[in-house]
Amino acid sequence: MSSTTNQPPLLEVRGLTTEFATRAGAVAAVRDVSLTVRRSEKVAIVGESGCGKSTLALSILGLIDKPGRIASGQVLLEGRDLVGLSESAMKTIRGKTVSLIFQDPMGALDPIKTVGAQIIDTLRRHQPGLSHKAARARAVELLREVEVPAAERRLDDYPHHYSGGMRQRVMIAIALANAPDLIIADEPTTALDVTTQAQVLALLERVVADHGVAVLLITHNLGVVAEFCDVVQVMYAGRIVERGPTEAILARPTHPYTQALLESIPDPARIGTRLRAIPGMPPDLSAMPSGCAFEPRCFFGHGREICRTRQPAPVEIETTSGPSQVECHFATERAARASEVAAS
């Protein structure tokens, strides 16, 4: 996982801020976010709805349209800044170096074009020399790779002939078509039933390992993060509040938000007790608190002077499986206390 070469990381986002123009002025959905994805690494961005995780994903791909815009920051793909590139420059990157998998409530595939046509189009767009016949053969191969039964016949079917799980397999096939370095997967299994979700996750895990592709997984499901990702970034109100090795962070969260989120998942070990709900709601992005965005809901810092008035800076914490970063005024204190508890 640690890179010892001097090569730039596959993806490096620096100080990215994405704003949307509203009647009340510009509202930042992503605020000064930095993150790194190395080759073949699986990174999760986890958070609740409205935290800005999908906006972050779209910003990386340059898919933010008016009234939204990237206000500042850089998106470096192998050292090259993508922010401000034209559509015609971006089209050679999207679907080739970086591809996208979307949550699928029926909507991620064009309903009036066959599945085959959409795969073939993706192939030939980035490989102009490819004949239609060769592209078709390659599309069948791709469908086989994602375990769609009777691939050859199903190529000419329309999306509505596919079940939800099968459509998500097609999305994975399209994402893999041009051997990308990075796949951005936005809630890829959210709309699926548990057994189908398990199938799709197992498939994604296999193809990603086979091809050595890096994955940036956007999800709200901490269980999926635990099973799938090496690194997790917890997002709240447009910022990444905690990041580090998945195992360490989920076992011993330092940020109060991460802890509260984990504790709000029903745990069979605590049947009969009340769940730890997070009171209130995420802040209105157009009226952010002046200090820490989580302060009004925080069981630890609520009412403390420093939390109310000052935005916390990231603090480095050493965990058993590597360094983590936490945006909390009391990070060091909380981490120390947590390791004491673990030790005793």
């Binding site: 609740e48 509260a260 709000s264 730890r276 709900a277 997070i278």
Partner: peptide
């Protein structure tokens, strides 16, 4: 609903 809100409603 979101996880944290789910917990509120279940409670």
């Amino acid at each position: 609903l979101d996880v944290s809100v789910q917990a509120q409603i279940l409670n």
